[in-house]
Every structure is written in structure tokens, then in C-alpha cells.
Design a binder for these strands. Sequence first.
DNA 1: AAACTTAGTTCGCTAAGGCAACAAACTAAT
DNA 2: ATTAGTTTGTTGCCTTAGCGAACTAAGTTT
Lengths: 397, 397
Amino acid sequence: MRRIDLKNVQAARLNTIRYINRQIVLNYVREREPISRAEIARETALQRSTISTIVDALKIEGLVEEIGEGESTGGRRPTMLRLRMAGPVAIGVAIRPTRIVVATSNLAGSVIEQEEFPSDPDQEKTLQLVIESVRKFSERNRASIEAVGVSLPGLVDPATGHAIYVPHFKWRDLPIEQRIAAATGLPVTIDNDANSVALAELWFGRPEVTDARDFILILVGQGVGTGIIIDGQVYRGERGAAGEFGHMIVGAEAPVACSCGNYDCWEAFSSERAALARYQKLCEQQEPETLTFAMLVDRALDSEENAKAALIETAHYLGIGISNLVVGFSPEVVVVGGEISRAWPLIEEALSETIERSVRRGLPSARILPSTLGANPSLLGSLSLVLASKFAAAFAA
Amino acid sequence: MRRIDLKNVQAARLNTIRYINRQIVLNYVREREPISRAEIARETALQRSTISTIVDALKIEGLVEEIGEGESTGGRRPTMLRLRMAGPVAIGVAIRPTRIVVATSNLAGSVIEQEEFPSDPDQEKTLQLVIESVRKFSERNRASIEAVGVSLPGLVDPATGHAIYVPHFKWRDLPIEQRIAAATGLPVTIDNDANSVALAELWFGRPEVTDARDFILILVGQGVGTGIIIDGQVYRGERGAAGEFGHMIVGAEAPVACSCGNYDCWEAFSSERAALARYQKLCEQQEPETLTFAMLVDRALDSEENAKAALIETAHYLGIGISNLVVGFSPEVVVVGGEISRAWPLIEEALSETIERSVRRGLPSARILPSTLGANPSLLGSLSLVLASKFAAAFAA
DNA sequence: AAACTTAGTTCGCTAAGGCAACAAACTAAT
DNA sequence: ATTAGTTTGTTGCCTTAGCGAACTAAGTTT
């Protein structure tokens, strides 16, 4: 029941019907593999002959492959289908404050080759490092690589391909999409890291998340980012500014300054930097500046009291912001991503406690879950920018 | 770029293509009337022959009519089309705390006949009054009336057709959709009043609003309701609980109790009841209990100082809640509806002042506009429940 | 008056799903 | 072991609906 947007709508052509059904069949193969033609026909109520024609086309395109026969249920045994596993199809570039990760993956999102290197303070040098790495992977897999996805820790306009403002690198209005596309000859998609990770959760997360049509991802890192999924797509709001919840005011006198310079933003209370600052303060005797957040989590998991206290206080503030979002969106799920999710057993209680406070008279409360995307969520996010576009619906209304 | 929901998706059939194009053509006629077949063909890039076939079908269905010829642009003069104006097609029922309005309208949402009567404290009697009124209109327009829309001031589950909880009437889990449908033999759609009014703004509001894909409607009445439009559709969240922003905590010691009994909800600070309580307090000498909010607005417009002060303080709290929502959703527009919008010149400053406070570093701020739906927004809302379903896209992904 | 233009219709063509029939391959009962 | 019944996948003809070209109607411009 969506209002048709006449400015963007595409009328249906004769091939539209085939395109729609092709995407549906492709998604059945992706989500229910291994699956037979006959079962897809039963589920979609399309004719078996129609499914066969579509599967033939998907096989020729290299998206789907047959993997032998399944069990008989009283008749001829079905031919089982799955996504084609071999061959890298996407390159993902995760630009993070200190380190940059570039990798190739197959259709299912499994990483095939991966490379990691530190960023350079100089904008041009960092960009050149990225371009060289992408070019290397692309040349090694001529023909099979179709596109590049790039995730950035900052404000991004995916429509124009410009990085509007990336605090850590002090990038302003950098046309990074065009730069990489021109240098590699490949199509490039860029997005904010939180949006990318939200997309990765939507397509490659645990079932509770991928089954949800509406959820919110909180990405805790140097800052705090949010990615909002509504009706199975990233919600951007006007000028892509939705998701800038990191700058919600949740108090005063935060332990560190926000990336925007203020001391009252949610990010200044809940980021990895905030947790580290709390730990430094608790320890009094000076901890070295080189202490990373990963090390802090390790110490907390080793039951070091100060480390645990710093994390729990950070989780408390994280919870305050989450409760604001839950009241607003009534999402099915809230996913917390970033290094902090490794410490889930320690912080879970502090998180849910704060959120319970905001549960009001019978309104459903969302489930709070840690991310399951592993050590490099923003890499999977950047890959998702490419992979999701192959499976998503780009049709109608 | 939406993820396909395999549990709800409908595969495309041969007639899907026709249905999609039919809805597109219908919406061109609605939004751009008067318009010719040839112009629709140019805009959609469909063949003139295709448009002609579709328009013929729409004429036979009684949705579209010809209204003579337009101006020549150097060749044969075009035949202009518009929505069929004659004949009521929808019945709308706006159930409000004190009065109930029932009306018929044509396809364009113009009210044709209208009836208003007070509600009865008894649940069954009120329901019987509504059913009798609907039946009268329906019998008077045999054949042409297609469906009934009902808007309610409370928690509603449009999926099951139950009024979950309507505070003013103390209705709990009332299957009102089935009751009216059974008694009148017509299809019935129900929804929350704020959602219905948001839908009316989306389809029948001023251009700044109907052109927006994302906006928020704030409906100020006995309570404060919110309707959220995202990507041209009502966002409901899990179990339809999105839009219950009225229960956001924005302070303590509100002038009146919220419908939920608490004194810290946004609704308790910003509703018509809150404004009346403020006025009573300012006047000290007892104002009669029968003073309505409409009278308060009239007095304020007559420059009575106490009335103005009560409204401005109410607007101040209204603004606090709105700024929370703006930060979260980054909508293009926020529309304020209800009696209070009549006092716009008085409250505009108080509203925008509060909202400016929350505008952070370059993030776009939404435009705040009064509703233009007239004296009975929830009536137009209930009619929209029927009319929108005729024009909306119910296809694909 | 002749040459263009634009609008709307007619008619055969093509793409793609529907449907029925059929062969292949299996299970289960006699 | 034979026969009957199921399930899968394919083949070929039918129908739907957009495409495109040709045609008529009705205007404007030179």
C-alpha cells in the first residue's frame, strides 16, 4: 500500500514480469538452498515450466548451480540448486580509522582473499593504497569481479558518491566513488559504515535479524553510528541525514569530546574512546596511550575489575540512547555491533536494564542482540553494498 | 533496493504488468488532471496504444472520465481526462471522543453528504448509531459505495480489525471492523486516527506534503498522536506500536494526567486538555467546565492574554517532542494537525524556537507546517483509508 | 492549398506465464 | 517381480499485454 512516486516510477514492460520472477527465484535459491525447481514452483505458485526457464537463465548467468539430487518423497528425485559458490564476484573496501581492509567474496558473501594495511595521514596516499589494492584483486580475477563496495566512517552521500565529511581523515566533499571507479574501471558503490553494516545484518545476519523487516543497528567504534532498516531497506531520511543519532543529546560532561567537538552527544558517552577514557581514569596510574579498545575488552573478559567497570558504564549510556530509539521506531530487533559485542556477557545486563526503564504500558519491547558478523563487520558491510544490489528488488512503485 | 520478503511476495503473473501500468496511469490522471492520453504516453514512455487500452478499461470501471478537448500544440487537439467526480464511492467514519462524523465522498476525496452526532457512553449504543448511519448512506447510494473507512482515537490493529484499546470509550479488543462489515455487508478498514490523518495528508494534503516521501504528522486532540510516513507508506513498526510517541517522557509534573495515567508523557504536556488546564490555572477565577478547546483558540485569536499564554506554553512542549522526532527521522516535513493549527500565527514562533535548539551542525532541519485538511481531518483520514487503497501500489516485493 | 504536427485507433508481432501432456525416475503394494 | 501411483522436469500450444508501424482525424504553419 505504497503511494506511487510518479517522478521515479518505471512503467512495467514485457520483460518486467520476467525480471520480478527472476529476482524471486534467485532469492529462494539464496535463502532456502538447497532447493529444487519443483519446490520453488510450489511456493511461488508459478508453473514448473516457468521456474525451469528462469533457472536455466540463472545458470547461464553464473548465479545458480546444480548440486546433485535430493531425497525422493515418493517419486523422481529432485535436482537441488544453490548459489554458485566458486569465483569472486565482489570487492569490498572497509575504510576504518586506523586500518583498511580490502577483500574479495563470492555470491554468498564468503571472503575469498583479504588484505589489510594501515591508513596514511595523507588523503591522497590513503586513496592510492586503496586503489592499488582494488586493482590488484581485480586484475587477479579478470572478468569475474563485477563491482566494488566501499564503507566509510563518516557522512556519505551515496547518490553523488561523495564523502561529505569523514572526521578521522578530515576528508571533506571527496568524490571517492568516481576516483576509484575511474582508476579501476569498475562500478563503485559507497556508503556510511553503519548503513553498510546494517545492510550486512539484513542480508547475512542471524535469522532473527534477517527475518525482521524493521530493525536498528548500533555500530560502536571510534564514534557511534546507527543504521536503520525499514521495510527491508536502508532508511536515509532527507539528504541521508537519518542515522546521525550519534549526536543525540543524552547528558553533559562526557568523558571525551564527540567527533563534532561537543561533550553532550551520545557518541561522547558511548564510543570506544569514551570507554578507554573511563578506564584510564579508573586506573589512575597512567596506562600507556597505545592501549586499544580490543585490549580493554580482553582485560575485562579476564575479569579485571577496572576494565569491567569501564565497559559496564559505557554500556549504561549505550542503553540510554537505544531506549530512545526503541520508543521511536518500535523495531523488532536492535543489533549492537563493533568490538564491544565480544564483551556481551558483561554488558548485556547493563543494556537491558536501561531499556526496560523505557518500556511503557504494554508496548512491545525490542530484542537487543549482539552482532554475529564476526571480527570485521564493516568489511562484510562493504561487500553487501555490491551483493545486496544483485538480490534486492529494484522494481515497481 | 528492497530486500524481497519471501513470506509475503507475490510472483508476477501475466496480468501483473497490466495492473502495474493501470495504477500508474490512474495516478497520472489523479495528480495531473486534466491530462491527455498522449501526455501520459510521453511521461511513462509507454505506447499511445497501450495507454488507450488502459484508459478504456478505467472508463468502463467508472474511475476516469473525459472532459472535452484541450488546446492544440500544433496538431489535433487532445482529449482531456480526469477522475470521475460524480457519485459517492466511499463512506468515512471519524469516531472522536465527543462527536462522531459519518460522510460519503467521491474519488477525489470531496465530501458529498455528511452527518454528525454525539457518541453515547454505552459501547453498544455508539456502535449501533454508527452502523445505522453507515447503512443509511449505503442504501441511499446502492451499488456505487465500495467500502467504509473508520478512524479511532486509540490503539488499533488494522491487520485483525480490532480496536485494541480506545481510552475515551474504554473499548478493549473490540472487533469493530467485523461488526460493521457484518451489519452493512460492505468491506471495512479501520485505523488509528493519527495514521489515518497522516494518510490523508499524504494523498490530499498540500503539495509540500504530498510530494514528500517521508514525513511525520502530529495530531493534537484530547491526546497527542503521531503518524509516520516513510517511503510513501504508513510506518507501523512491530505490532503497530510505532506512533505511540505520545508516551515519550519529556518532563515531570504535567498539568494533566496522560490517558495512560502518568504525568510525565508528552501527551500530558501538549494535548488540548493540557492547554485547557493551563488556561484554567492562569484565570484563577473558575472558568466553567464546559469550556472547549475550540473556544480557547477563539479567545486566543481575540488576543486574550491568558488564552494566548496557555497556547504558547503548550506549543513549547509540543516543540520539544517534535525536535526529538526530527533528530531521529530526519523527515522532510512535520505536519501539525488538530484544532490548534487554527492558532498557527500564535504558536509558530514557540514551535520553531524549540526545534532550532536541536538543529545540530549542518544536519537538515525539517519544515514545520500546519495541516491544511480543514475542520475535520480525521474524517478525511477515514475516507483516505478507502481511497488510498484504490490508488496505491499493492504490488511487487 | 500544401506541408507539417499531434492525437488517437487498428492490427499484426513478440515475450512470457498458463496449462496439459509426457517421459524419467522413484516408492510401495500385491 | 510386477503393477500402480508419485514426483520431477521438459515440451509444445494457448493467452495476455506491451511494441511498433500504419492510418485516420483534426489541428497549425507557410
